[in-house]
Structure formats: structure tokens, C-alpha cells
Amino acid sequence: MTGDDSLASDSIASDYRFVLEHDVSMLEIALAAVSFEDCSLDDSVPLDRASVAYDCWLEALEALHPGHRFRGFGLSDAELADDGLLERLLLTVLFDGGSCRSVIRSVVAVVNGYRRNHRG
């Protein structure tokens, strides 16, 4: 690994910690909700809605924190194959009768909680 690779790796690790540890602000949720509302998800399966909600939040983070590459922290294939995570994500989008803001907040809380518990 070159010095530049090491710096990039440190930056990604720092971004990841930031995503895991910071509180979700109302502004982030509001920005993510605007993007989420623009998505045509009426006929999509609930898990797609959860994944898109999380991606919208990551996009809002990038807009609010220039220089960070948060979009690279979307749900991984391994996470999407974890039944425990999927069950919790599905509960957020199936039984949350609130606005898309509350859906995004719930999805972010589930994913970040899962990642905190599975860091290794």
C-alpha cells in the first residue's frame, strides 16, 4: 500500500466512523426525504424502499459534508443477505405509517445500529 492509499484508507475509515457515530440531524433527514420523495417506489418491494432511503441519506451526507465519500457506504451484499438485518429493515418500512422522513430516520437507525454491533 502506498502512502496515498494509506491516506485514502484512513479517510474512508474516518468517514465510516462518522456515519456510525454521529446523530442524524433534521437537515440531513429533510434533504434525504426530498430525494426519497422524487423516487418512483410505488410498486417496489419494501426492501428496495429501505435501501433507497438509506442511499438518499448518504447522498444528503455528501451534500452537507463536501470531501467525504459517503455514497460508498450503502448496504453491502453481505448485509442484504443477513436475515436479522433484513427483518429489522422490513419492519421499518412495512409498519411505519409516518412520513418518508420517519422511514429514513428508522432505516438509518437500524443500519447504523447493526453496523455498530458487527464492526470487527
Rank of each mutant, 00 (worst) to 15 (best):
P66C: 08
F73V: 06
S76T: 10
E37C: 15
D55W: 07
A109Q: 08
D83P: 01
V107H: 03
L91A: 10
R101G: 04
L64C: 14
A33E: 09
L61E: 09
D43M: 09
G97N: 09
H68F: 06
D77K: 11
S76Q: 01
L47H: 03
V103Q: 09
R49Y: 00
H65N: 12
A53R: 08
G84A: 11
L85T: 06
V107A: 03
P46A: 14
W57K: 03
D96C: 06
E37G: 13
V52D: 03
D43A: 15
C56H: 04
R49N: 10
T92C: 11
L27M: 13
V103P: 04
A50L: 07
L85H: 04
L89W: 02
C100W: 00
V111H: 04
V34Y: 01
E28R: 06
C56M: 03
L58C: 10
L47T: 14
H68A: 13
V108I: 14
A109S: 12
S35V: 00
L27S: 13
V45Q: 12
P66N: 10
E37F: 04
L91H: 12
G98K: 13
S40A: 14
L85I: 08
L58E: 03
A60D: 08
V34R: 15
D77F: 02
H68E: 09
S99A: 12
F73A: 05
D42H: 14
V108C: 08
L64H: 05
G113N: 05
D48P: 01
V93N: 02
L94V: 08
G97A: 09
L64E: 13
Y54A: 03
L31T: 13
P46F: 05
L75F: 01
S99T: 15
G84M: 04
F36K: 15
L91N: 14
L90M: 11
A60F: 12
R88M: 02
G98F: 07
D42T: 15
R71A: 13
C100H: 02
D82L: 10
P66A: 14
A33K: 05
